[in-house]
Structures are given as C-alpha cells and as structure tokens.
Write a protein that binds this DNA or RNA. Sequence first.
DNA 1: CGCCCGTTTGAAATAATTCAACACCGGTGG
DNA 2: CCACCGGTGTTGAATTATTTCAAACGGGCG
Lengths: 260, 260
Amino acid sequence: MRPLKTYSLAGSWSIRVTNDLSLLVRHLEAHAPLSPEDRDAIMSLPAARQTIATSSYLVREGEPAKTCALLVDGIVYRQKITGAGVRQIVSFHLRGEALDFQNVFLGCADHDVRALTPVVLMIIPREQLLLMIRKRPAIAHAVLMSVLIEASIFREWIVNVGRRGGEARVAHLLCEYAWRMDVLDPGKAEYEFPFTQEQIGDATGLTAVHVNRMLGLLEEKGFIRRERRLLRFLDIHGLRRTGDFDPAYLHGNAVLDGIL
Amino acid sequence: MRPLKTYSLAGSWSIRVTNDLSLLVRHLEAHAPLSPEDRDAIMSLPAARQTIATSSYLVREGEPAKTCALLVDGIVYRQKITGAGVRQIVSFHLRGEALDFQNVFLGCADHDVRALTPVVLMIIPREQLLLMIRKRPAIAHAVLMSVLIEASIFREWIVNVGRRGGEARVAHLLCEYAWRMDVLDPGKAEYEFPFTQEQIGDATGLTAVHVNRMLGLLEEKGFIRRERRLLRFLDIHGLRRTGDFDPAYLHGNAVLDGIL
DNA sequence: CGCCCGTTTGAAATAATTCAACACCGGTGG
DNA sequence: CCACCGGTGTTGAATTATTTCAAACGGGCG
C-alpha cells in the first residue's frame, strides 16, 4: 500500500508504485472476510508488474483471456463500439480494482479495456487465479460480491444514460468519481481529473460539445471549479442534488459476514 | 420441465406449471458443469411455489433480502425510479432464471423487481442457498457465471440507451427478446409479447409515444408484424441490422469446463 | 354497454446534436 | 528561444431527434 516512489509518465498523472498484491487483498477483504490463509494465498500469487501508456488497450473485444489484471495505479475504462462506429464507455476503474473477472470466467472479452491515464498493473495468470478461487470459498465469495457490486453500478449507469437530462448525467458521473476517489483518499475536496470531455460524453451518452456546456453550467452554479487537470468540488451537496446521486448503488460497505 | 397443466390468470399470459427445481439445475448447468451430487443438492432445496399477479412487486428497493426467487414462468423486470420520478427498466427475465442473487448477497435491494405478466416462482430461503453455495464450489461457480452474463447484458443496455437512435434501440430490445425466447423455445418465428409500449420506452430510455412510432416504422419496413399480443418476426436479419444486434454479449454457450 | 388501459396520430416545444470556427496549452523540433 | 502542431476545450448558429401535450381510438373485461 505505501508508495515506494512517485514519478510521471507522459501526461500529468502521477503514479504511485507499490510492490505487492496487498491491494488485491484489500479489495477482496472489503467484500468478504478472509482468513490469514486466504490472504497468504493471494499474496503468493504469481504476478508481474506492468506499466501501460495512456489510451492503450489492456484488452480488446473478442480477445481470449489469459490473464487477470489488478489495477495498481491509474484509471482504466471499458468501452464498446456500436456498428455505427460510436463509442460508449460503460465503466471506469480506480486504483485497487481487479479488472478482468468477467473475461477470466467468460473466456472471451465482449468489450475493450483501455488506459485513461498511464497505468500500473499486476498481471496474474488466469489459471492460478481460477485455482485459488476454486480452493478458497471465501475468496470466491469476495469475487462474487465484487462482480455483483459492479453489476449494480452498471444498472445505475443505465438509469443515468436512459432517464436523466444532460446536466444531471454529468453531475452524477462527477459525484460517482468524487465518491469513489474519496474512498481511496478520504476527506479531500479536490482530485486530479484526467477525463477529457469527449470521454465524459461517451460515458454519459452525450456529445463532447454538450458536456462542455453542462460543465460550464455546473461551474456557473458554483458546484465545481475546474483548474487545469484538477477538479474541485465546491458544493458536493448541490452537485448530488442536481445529479440525483444516491451512493447506495455503490454498496460501499457491503460485507456479508454471517453464514458464508 | 414438462408442463403439468396450463391455465391463465387475469391477462393473456398462459402459465406453465412445473413442480420442481429442475429449472434451476438447468439454468446453472448451462453455465458450469455440475456433478450428480450438486444436482441433488439443488433439487432438495426447500422451496415454496408462489403465484404473483401482473405488475405486483417481488422485491422493493431498500428491502432486506430473505429469499431468492426462481422464475418458473412468466416475465419479470427490474426497475429504478429517479429522483424526478421517472422510471428506467434495467432488465427483464424469462422462465428459468434466478432472480435474486444480487439481493441475497448484497443484502439490500437497490432496485425493484416486478411482474410483467402473471408469474410463478419457487421461493428459496436465503440461508439455505448460501449454505449450498458455500459447500459446493461448482454451484458457486455457476452462480458467478450467471451473474457475469447478466452484467454483460447490463453493459450492452448502457450502449443501447446511450448511443443508439430510437429505431435501433427498440429493434435491439426486440432482437434480444426474440433471441432469449428462442433459447427457451427454439425455431419459432413468433412469440407472445406482453410488453406495453410504456415498458418498452422505460427499457430503452424513450417515450411511449416515440416507441409507438418506432414500432410502426419497424412494421412498415417489414421487420415485424404485431397481431394482438403476438409479435411475429418477419425479417429477423433486417431487424438485427437496424438494431445493431450481435448476440455475443449474451454469452449463449459460455461454459467454463476446464479447471474449475 | 360502457369503462379503462393501452395505442395511435398530430402539432408545438425543447433538448441535444451537428457543423464550424477559434482559443488554449503542453510538447516537439528548428 | 520561439514557432508550430495536435489534441482539447469553448462558443455560436442551424438542424434534428425526441418529448410533450392533447385528443381520439380500440379492445378486452366487468
């Protein structure tokens, strides 16, 4: 967890490098209690660190899956391209998340995964991961929880894109970003915000041009302030109200500790 | 699986009644190989049959989950209501699907589940299901696959609602319905179609009025014909083209048989 | 028979897109 | 050091898809 050193690749995203799999332990433990042996099993997974440049592909649609990546630092997003050639971004991922459960299990990717910033990964071979999950029910359970929460986020995105106006859509996205960043790095009122307006548009089903106007609106109303690559949240409550944001769908502290 | 008798409740949806859990065995087995003992464990789950009227709620947002329902017959959908009071339907479910994995594991429902037709369920107590999943890795694995496929469908819906025009959206929805019905009852060119235009609108992010016009368009072009509560697919390929429908996201025969 | 829910159709209003031009900023090469 | 370059952001005006409102129709059910 503790940063070894910080440097930056092309672009302005600063990278924190950690040298182990404890991020994965943390991520899974947030969803289900693990025994010391479970933790050891995760920590002794074979894994190779890899660094990836902005906008390159971690996975391409149609590719068979041979590995599972853990996101150590940076931001990653999933996209699908329609027959008409337009893009929809269907999710983004922050430090600490496992990126490829779907592909590992379904075998073939139905979407692309790309780096939004320079990204650091731990690459875990698919078979090792499957074996571990098979042997350790608690880990299997944590993986299931992680997948269920991601599905819940997908549902909320359907609502966002399907039934909210432009202003609310981008406000909602910003709220989700703020919320999820806050979990990683609590109590800050501002965060690096490396999304381009085109990417915001592709995530909200809007045009880059329209996103620009909506961001202007939100700034004008005093909810946010943009300064270079930094986004400052001046009135998070106002933003939540206009974005109709209720963080319940993120299932922040969903840990099923009883029976399983 | 074999119908015992057929009758109809209020409305025109005809109900097939089966007296066992073999549908759940089938559903899970479609995603991962099960041993005879796994099958027995499922078949001996305590379960109560229940019949539910059209448009009533199986689960309400915010409710704690105590049971898991298996859909024996009828159609069910999930909805979320925005702060502005508009509805978005985020998925629908057909005969044979398990409805409440998310709620069973996450503990608290983040959306409503409602009957689109009269519906027959098998109600399984949450604890029994959790216990079984804990004891039987193959079943846990099948559940995970089922959840992953549902998540893949959510992603495609985000694309549909976010990046396709009105005509394509409803065409896509119809294609998915046809495809999934065809899996249950192969080779037919027409199916009962109990969706109201308002429901189609809420599933595609459109207005009922606009859905009406788009359906008219699709019919005019000779892709479909509507006769009472029946929908006939006259040109499924044309429909797929205009709906930009590629069934890959349904992961029709995704069975991971190797390692796990 | 009449009622109610769902469908159909038209016309006016609106949100968002498209197209186009320009400004900005960091990075690259002369 | 400056000039240029490409990608991103900003702004305005015209166009279009979709919504809204409203009214009428139809068919199944009591």
